[in-house]
Design a protein around this nucleic acid. Structure first.
Lengths: 252, 252
DNA sequence: ACTCCCGCCTCCCGCTGCGTGAGGGTCAAG
DNA sequence: CTTGACCCTCACGCAGCGGGAGGCGGGAGT
């Protein structure tokens, strides 16, 4: 059972050119040629082509497909599993975008016109346009940054207002603690530091103790962040820094 | 507030080269240049870039994005809705592939080794390799073909056996009817023709009366299909053809 | 005022995965 | 022995950038 390019092309729903291409790059060489130079594909070639098409559908680059197919001791089950994961990931990403779009539609319907500033107004003093670039430099490319960007896009106006309220509540309690004269490395301060960490984790990204202390250092090192906390209460940046460090140390 | 390429690039998580490219093709021209020729982007440019990135994420080609963004009276809500649909479609497709992969994994786990022949063995005499190409020529590219291909991939071995059983049951009853001497355009024959159509619809694709009569004609025109029905009972191809036509006429 | 170095500029070539001819041989049917 | 449908091999083109060469600009430090 030998097939010509045209037959194979029609059967596999690809163009002849594609088969030529696969031949050129060595991805799918026909098992033989006629005396006139015509490509002859056999059943095994068809099987291989089916696999190729399948992987292609999944978005694999041709080179990678070649590696997969030509790896003799590659575990097919592992491949399937891997593909499954990749697909699930892609589905997840697409679904996130869908919800983002739904949000946007909701906003339009209500005439809310969710401008970028509006989306970030909950950040208070932190003007996103002013600091976005810096944020990118500091955290760009990290998982944490990706997460927070992603979530920011999904939150509704109410969500963000709720977040703001929670932050303010925490801030009031923190100021009260400072006013009470409690030490920055005392149990209450550490508890509030921990709460601060969890607020970040809840709303934005998984904030490890390492990341948290990094943030703490920034609060005293970067004047803009310092200013934000200092307006809540003078001395707060340094106090919070100490509390976060104390908390991180005690937990590890 | 003017930004340089580098700043914009970092903020938007794209490369400088990409911004150059967008400038070149006119997709995003910076609002101005400095005396030295440096590109200067303002807030509006950033907004536009955000939209561009968004549409790009969704897989739109740049040209189309330009059309969308430059269409002054384009309804943004309509766009969102359209994107939503596209995304939903994509998710659906990916999910189908996931289930297909899951099936394949199940089969591997049980050591079943679902070879192509096995997958199609329920087709009986119809050797897929022998007819796949023809099928493509006849139906390739049609919605019906796509549907049946898609479903075939999702069916489990049990599903396919069930389908086979249902077909055989229908076949037996059809043969019995012929044996009884009932006319091919009588009510019983038409009822069984209708059932035939519904079996196809249930298992493979939406089989309209038009498609159904097309199939009927093929049963008498194509010797391979003729042979399939003739082995069930001599004269069955022609009888079934008549019954299907009678049924289609009476229903329209 | 001078020097650095980083960032900006404009070419321009390269990559993937083919599409789409051009120009020419081949094969089966009539 | 011709037709028409295939087949062959170049070979260029396209999107959407990546990446580098070669050269200017600018602001921070000395």
């Amino acid at each position: 059972m030998a097939y010509t390019v045209g037959q194979v092309a029609r059967a596999a729903r690809v163009t002849v050119r594609t088969l030529h291409h696969y031949d050129e790059i060595g991805l799918l060489r026909p098992s033989g040629r006629t005396s006139a130079g015509y490509r002859r594909y056999d059943e095994a070639d068809l099987d291989r082509l089916q696999l190729i098409r399948y992987y292609r559908e999944l978005g694999f680059p041709l080179e990678e497909i070649a590696e997969i197919l030509d790896d003799p001791d590659a575990d097919p089950v592992a491949h399937l599993r891997r593909q499954h994961e990749l697909l699930s990931g892609r589905i997840g990403k697409l679904q996130e975008m869908v919800t983002a779009i739904e949000h946007a539609m909701e906003a339009r319907k209500l005439g809310i016109q969710l401008t970028p500033e509006e989306r970030f107004e909950v950040f208070g003093n932190f003007d996103p346009d002013e600091h976005a670039e810096e944020a990118e430099q500091r955290w760009g490319g990290t998982e944490a940054y990706r997460q927070s960007q992603e979530r920011a896009g999904r939150y509704s106006k109410e969500d963000l207002l709720r977040n703001k309220a929670e932050n303010e509540d925490w801030g009031r309690r923190f100021v009260a603690l400072m006013d009470s004269g409690a030490p920055a490395d005392g149990p209450e301060a550490m508890a509030l530091a921990e709460e601060h960490r969890q607020l970040i984790t809840k709303w934005w990204y998984d904030c490890s103790y390492e990341i948290h202390t990094g943030l703490a250092d920034m609060y005293v090192a970067d004047p803009r962040f310092t200013a934000h906390y200092e307006t809540l209460r003078p001395g707060m940046a340094a106090y919070l820094n100490e509390a976060i460090h104390a908390n991180a140390i005690s937990r590890s």
